[in-house]
Design a protein around this nucleic acid. Structure first.
Length: 734
DNA sequence: CACAGGTCTCTTTTT
DNA sequence: GAGACCTGTG
């Protein structure tokens, strides 16, 4: 990390009034400039209260927050640092009544959204073959991103039958959200912009409050975010945006690269500053990144440079298949970790698609390398977690039909689809919520014996609400839910590997609730649910945890690691087949930008690899080496790879199980949560079971720092040393 | 009503 | 390879 600001950084920090565009290349000290600028503003006498910094992820917000606090100390807490989404939630909780919602609205995630869209399709008798929910969801989302209301959408759709149908679905979907007092992710932005448009007095209040606004990752803002920022900055025009057009990788999500490219048109008086000195990567890594991105048209001309030395060459290897790629990646990490005495957290394995993580995970697991997979299935999206959250949501907001329907028959209460449909019809006719209809079940025609079962459910909800109202904490309420529904007990009885995993997740959820209660002065169920709704997996990336990080390149944006492995450098995978086939030339350029982002995550060493043969969607593919590899000049690459890899494979002792590795069946597709073993359930001499290596006898247990190192003699694999927290050995009763 | 087993489709990235 | 959907059986 640099000691003093360089001249352009200094210039950016010094700029106080009026619009400012900072074009910050990868690793050019962007966060530093943002935080120093906040400090400078305050030094110049601007009250912290008037400063707003917007980021994309909670993680980035947390980082900025932390550094601002360090830099400023007293008063820093009134600087508002937040993501777009949480900023909007805070505003809406205050004022959403002005546009006809209740302030205790719930937030729907993608899955809730999907359930709702599905219902809409059925309700409107649309053909799900012609209108798959995925497409409808994408259409609706796209409309909202562009601030197009259902009505407007309908007007634009005239003459196009397809679009007219979509308009109907959009209208009905939005009507239902409103009835449920729920907002989806897109609504958070949409409704805020709408609020500001409809209520100029509210807007003015925030314009006065946020006189100095900064937006990070501006290249990834979409239309509605652009509109929101424009509204807020319109009065004082003290808007500072930071971004890098070369790192724009969210076009598929509506990001409009023009927001940054046309900033000077929107704000003609804007000052533009380029940060081109990279403080992160070695010369060779940076040279490779520059060469790759140079192949793109239509970018703002700039070239990153570094004062660092060239460093090692970039390694490129082609492997026979993805299993070998994964195995060798794991092997190299282990070697580097030992020989260079590095921590596991210094390594990241990045890939284009989440599907690639499974094989990598399997090989890391077999080599006893601790890892964590970020992204993919979010913790809060797991079935059991969502079920329990649905109970909490039902208790918090009885209008949330999606939550109520989710849990009505979970665990099984013998209430099936037929009964649900009858209740639904009744609710619709009476214009009441689904939960209220359940409370009136005896009035529902043809309900028969189901009425008694339903009453048991409504009694349960009433009881739980009572418990909360009488002053129980959220964690106490949570325990009551587990107890009274028998949810946990059912899993305990099931006693399969899967059910045990679910129990662990439930316990983790409980921990998060307790943690929330401990660190919040006035905990409330509404607030807890809101925080959870806005959490992304990547936010939990925690550098004190010594593990290799696995994630998509998208998730890695904004992060850096000493050692980076970019796997799957193959045509049709990266760049993706879709991008290659696309009519739109920019699709390929976006892939290239993504590659640029991937390369520039590396500080010291970069490893590229591809597989000759790879299973994709169930069938075998032979893909060519990615064009992005070819775009890196040969002199930057160390291609000696493949042969050496094979030689090394044979040499070390750890290779005893390599032949087994190639024939191993893929691991069951789920993320592993690794918890530190407090005390072990086994001791020396016990028979234990390992997920992969099967049965064995514990030879030795050593307490190494915060973990135990266990030596086990396996019946089929011989002696292995592993960390207890990771190996998850199960004691066997003989 | 619950569940098991079959067939079908569609494949990217996620705040 | 996974998820959605359908169908038949208990």
């Amino acid at each position: 990390m640099q000691a003093v600001l360089n001249p352009p950084q200094e210039e950016a920090v010094e700029h106080i009034d009026g619009p400012l565009l900072i074009l910050a290349g990868a690793g050019s000290g962007k966060t530093r400039v943002i935080t120093c600028r906040v400090a400078r503003l305050i030094e110049k006498g601007i009250p912290p209260y008037h400063i707003l910094a917007i980021t994309f992820t909670n993680k980035a917000a947390g980082e900025v927050r932390e550094r601002v606090d360090d830099l400023i100390g007293y008063g820093s807490e009134s600087v508002w640092v937040s993501t777009f989404h949480s900023l909007c939630v805070r505003i809406l909780r205050q004022h959403i009544e002005r546009i006809g919602y209740g302030t205790n609205f719930t937030i729907y995630d993608t899955e809730d959204q999907k359930r709702m869209v599905k219902e809409v399709i059925r309700f409107l008798n649309m053909d799900p073959k012609l209108y798959p929910e995925r497409r409808l969801m994408a259409e609706i989302s796209k409309a909202k991103e562009q601030f197009i209301s259902p009505h407007e959408y309908d007007l634009q759709a005239q003459g196009d039958y397809r679009k007219m149908q979509t308009a109907k679905a959009y209208t009905e979907y939005q009507r239902r959200l409103h009835n449920n007092n729920a907002l989806d992710f897109d609504d958070l932005l949409y409704k805020t912009v709408q609020l500001f448009q409809d209520c100029p007095d509210v807007l003015e209040q925030y314009q006065e409050r946020f006189r100095y606004i900064m937006v990070d990752e501006y290249q990834d803002t979409n239309e509605i975010q652009f509109l929101l920022v424009r509204q807020l900055a319109r009065k004082y025009r003290n808007l500072c945006v930071v971004g890098d057009d070369d790192q724009s990788i969210y076009k598929f999500r509506g990001a409009n690269i023009k927001n940054i490219l046309n900033f000077e048109q929107e704000y003609p008086e804007a000052k533009v500053i380029k940060l081109e000195q990279n403080y992160r990567s070695t010369g060779n890594i940076l040279a490779a990144a520059n060469e790759v991105i140079r192949h793109n048209q239509g970018r703002k001309e700039k070239t990153l440079w570094t004062a660092q030395e060239a460093g090692d060459l970039i390694q490129y290897k082609q492997y026979e298949n993805e299993y070998q790629e994964a195995e060798q990646t794991a092997y190299q990490i282990r070697e580097l970790q030992i020989r260079k005495n590095r921590n596991y957290r210094d390594f990241a394995i990045l890939y284009r698609t989440n599907a690639q993580s499974r094989v990598l995970e399997e090989k890391l697991l077999m080599n006893n390398i601790p890892y964590k997979i970020y992204g993919g299935q979010n913790f809060y999206a797991r079935l059991e977690v969502k079920d329990l959250l649905a109970y909490l949501k039902t208790i918090a907001n009885g209008y949330d039909d999606v939550a109520v329907k989710r849990i009505l028959n979970v665990p099984k209460r013998g209430i099936g689809a037929t009964t649900t449909a009858k209740i639904d019809t009744y609710a619709m006719a009476q214009e009441i919520s689904f939960l209220d209809a359940l409370y009136q079940a005896e009035n529902v025609p043809g309900i028969g014996k189901a009425a008694a079962k339903i009453q048991k459910f409504t009694d349960l909800i009433s009881d739980l609400r009572e418990i909360l109202a009488s002053g129980a904490s959220i964690s106490e309420l949570f325990d009551e839910i587990l107890e009274r529904t028998g949810y946990k007990e059912a899993l305990v009885t099931e006693h399969t590997e899967e059910s045990m995993n679910r129990i662990e997740n439930i316990e983790e959820l409980r921990n998060k609730i307790v943690q929330y209660e401990e660190e919040t002065e006035y905990p409330s169920l509404d607030e807890l649910l809101e925080e959870i709704a806005l959490i992304a997996d990547i936010d939990s990336l925690n550098s004190s945890d010594d593990r290799v990080a696995l994630m998509t390149i998208h998730s890695a944006k904004g992060l850096e690691f000493p050692y980076v492995f970019l796997c799957g450098m193959e045509e049709r995978l990266f760049p993706s087949n879709m991008a290659i086939c696309s009519e739109d030339a920019d699709a390929l350029e976006e892939e290239r930008r993504l590659c640029y982002v991937g390369i520039t995550r590396a500080r010291e060493r970069l490893f590229l690899s591809s597989a000759r043969q790879r299973m994709m969607n169930g069938s075998s593919n032979y893909n060519m080496i990615s064009r992005f590899v070819q775009e890196i000049p040969q002199e930057l690459l160390d291609m000696g790879g493949y042969k050496k890899a094979v030689e090394r494979e044979a040499a070390p002792k750890t290779s005893s199980h390599i032949s087994e590795i190639f024939t191993a069946k893929p691991a069951y597709g789920k993320a592993f949560t690794v918890t530190r073993a407090e005390r072990l359930e086994y001791q020396v001499g016990d028979r234990v079971k390992h997920m992969k290596f099967g049965n064995g006898i514990v030879e030795d247990i050593k307490s190494g720092g915060k973990d135990y190192e266990v030596t086990v003699d396996f019946e089929n694999y011989g002696i292995k040393r592993m960390f207890a927290s990771f190996a998850k050995l199960k004691k066997l009763e003989n």
